[in-house]
Design a protein around this nucleic acid. Structure first.
Length: 524
RNA sequence: GCCCCCAUCGUCUAGCCUGGCCCAGGACAUCAGCUUUUCAUGCUGAAGACAGGGGUUCGAAUCCCCUUGGGGGUACCA
């Protein structure tokens, strides 16, 4: 076994048919860790399994590479990641197929369409799996299988076996969905006289309901939201609301209808419906998690705990999760049972990491985050170094679970004054503004004059001090004044502390919003 | 249908290989209390699991068998 001198070669071999799936990211991570654990003696290789010509694309290839890099993984065959569709590779596969046929281990498919079938041997096939122990497949259990398709391309089985041997792969860590395939692959290796790597079939990652974690979930979530909307507002209005609302980008009505009728699971339509209905679609691809504002380190740490753990009660991989994983990696600690993907825990991990971030790093992360960049850059015109932006970041650092939540929770600080809407008909706002003697509007009117006299510099802090003093003098709760002010600037009763809030907003905007609010006072 | 795999709190898991230190530990979620001008944060506490049944043993979450439940495979996809 690993004595520190033995060479370890692992690989991650995605088929470039779409974005990097979160489960694929986990597979890549573990293979990476296995190699890095062995330092100079370990190699982690990448390979594109693009034998399915119809579904593969170079765009997908590129995006997978990008996402792996985003995760912080590095591979040792950069920049020449091999493709199975490479002509040289194809030649190599052809040679092996011919060899098999010559040895009477493969034969032409009965349909006479050019496909070639591998003849399974008549003996049992057994191998020692690191996770499962000895796995035995009795002779006759697995049928002969195709190794070359009618289009001349090899199937995945043939290509994998040849490539793993050529690349010198010593350890294959993959999901249990490949367990049966491994028996096929070993049969192929034996027929071709190629070495058999060490296999470790790890558990799968599934949805909370136990179903497969896939893109269908986005469609499911979108349809569920549509159903709920229809229940409240009427089924017949749904399509009109989705497709004919002027403020939204257009989407073909028939496509949407087909989608809602479960005729397809189109991700673009799902996204469209989700946006129109104001819901988050579940994240499935690494790209989704990035877009939602999850941190690289969060994902690495969380993925590293899905079906593996360093032992004991350790869950926090520390400030540098990747090196931690490489240091602590032990392939024998792979868990057998499937793991459900718990988004709440992931969010909590992300919140912890955001809280632990040094201010400068956080400011960069928020400022640069694609999804919210526009809103931020419009608002803080003095740029990334705007002191008010620093205050903004610090304020939401302990509130936001994702980078996106900086914008979601702090939206009222980013929008124009006239876009603030006042929810006077909701319980909390009604209570603050309309109930009591004096009521919130009276308090606001009084505050307005006092705030007008305050200096612009340090406005929020000064306001806070003023409210504090006033409340003390009157022996009242600070909320009596602070709450109406919250409503005036945000439209709701929930904001960060009043000093930070008003510091970010500034004196002028605060006064303007107070005016707007007063102007909208409902008639009793 | 056939083949294979898995099974500890709602969830991720530690413990299982090398039975006793486990009337089962941690984390997320939940609930309660404290902190608090709102919301959060923070702190403290509570509730919560060895799927069921048989063995083996002085002793089983840990070993064996059966049942049940869940998952994977059974493609000219990977």
């Amino acid at each position: 076994m690993a004595d520190g001198t033995e060479t370890i070669v692992t690989r991650f071999a995605p088929s470039p048919t779409g974005y990097l799936h979160i489960g694929g990211a986990r597979t890549a991570l573990f293979n990476w860790a296995m190699a890095r654990r062995h330092g100079k003696n370990g190699k982690f290789l990448l390979r594109m399994e693009d034998t399915d010509r119809a579904r593969s694309s170079t765009e997908a290839e590129q995006s997978i590479l990008e996402d792996l890099a985003w995760l912080g993984l590095d591979w040792d065959n950069e920049p020449d990641v091999p493709r199975q569709s490479d002509p040289d590779r194809l030649k190599e596969y052809q040679q092996k197929i011919d060899q098999l046929k010559a040895a009477d281990r493969a034969y032409d498919h009965g349909d006479g369409n050019g496909a070639v079938v591998f003849k399974m041997p008549d003996h049992d096939i057994a191998f020692d799996d690191i996770v499962r122990g000895t796995v035995t497949t009795p002779a006759g259990q697995i049928e002969d299988f195709v190794i070359q398709k009618a289009d001349g391309f090899p199937t995945f089985h043939l290509a994998v076996v040849v490539d793993d041997a050529d690349m010198g792969v010593t350890h294959v860590i993959r999901g249990t969905d490949h367990l049966t395939n491994t028996s096929k692959h070993i049969a192929l290796q034996q027929a071709l006289d190629l070495p058999t790597p060490t296999y470790a079939h790890m558990s799968l990652t599934v949805n909370p309901d136990g179903s497969k974690l896939g893109k269908r979930d986005k469609a499911k979530a979108a349809r569920k939201a549509a159903d709920e909307w229809a229940k409240i507002n009427g089924q017949e209005k749904l399509l009109t609301w989705l497709c004919d609302a002027p403020q939204r980008k257009k989407q073909d009505r028939q496509l949407v209808e087909a989608f809602l009728n479960k005729e397809n699971d189109d991700v673009t339509i799902a996204q469209f419906v989700g946006e129109a209905l104001g819901i988050h679609l579940p994240e499935i691809n690494v790209r989704d998690f990035r877009a939602s504002g999850y941190l690289t380190d969060t994902l690495v740490n969380f993925l590293g705990l899905l079906g593996w753990n360093p032992g004991g009660d350790i869950e926090d991989f520390g400030p540098t999760p990747l090196p931690f994983l490489a240091d602590h990696w032990d392939i024998k600690r792979l868990v057998k049972a499937d793991a459900k993907f718990d988004r709440d825990k992931l969010a909590s991990f992300n919140a912890d990491r955001i809280k632990a971030m040094p201010t400068e790093k956080l400011i960069d992360a928020v400022w640069g985050h694609e999804y919210i960049r526009l809103a931020l850059h419009n608002r803080f015109q003095r740029g990334r170094n705007d002191p008010m932006f620093a205050t903004f970041c610090a304020t939401y650092q302990e509130r936001a679970k994702t980078l996106n939540e900086f914008e979601e929770q702090g939206r009222f600080l980013l929008i124009e004054d006239e876009d603030v809407t006042y929810a006077f008909d909701t319980k909390n706002v009604k209570k603050v503004m309309l109930k009591g003697e004096p009521n919130g509007f009276d308090a606001l009117k009084e505050l307005k004059d006092l705030l007008t006299d305050l200096p612009t510099e340090g406005f929020g802090t000064k306001t806070h001090e003023l409210i504090q003093k006033l409340s003390e003098d009157r022996g009242t709760n600070m909320g009596k004044l602070a709450q109406p002010l919250r409503v005036a600037v945000s439209g709701s009763t929930v904001t960060p502390p009043i000093d930070a809030t008003l510091d970010i907003l500034g004196k002028q905007k605060t006064l303007d919003r107070i005016d707007n609010c007063l102007a909208q006072q409902p008639q009793q």
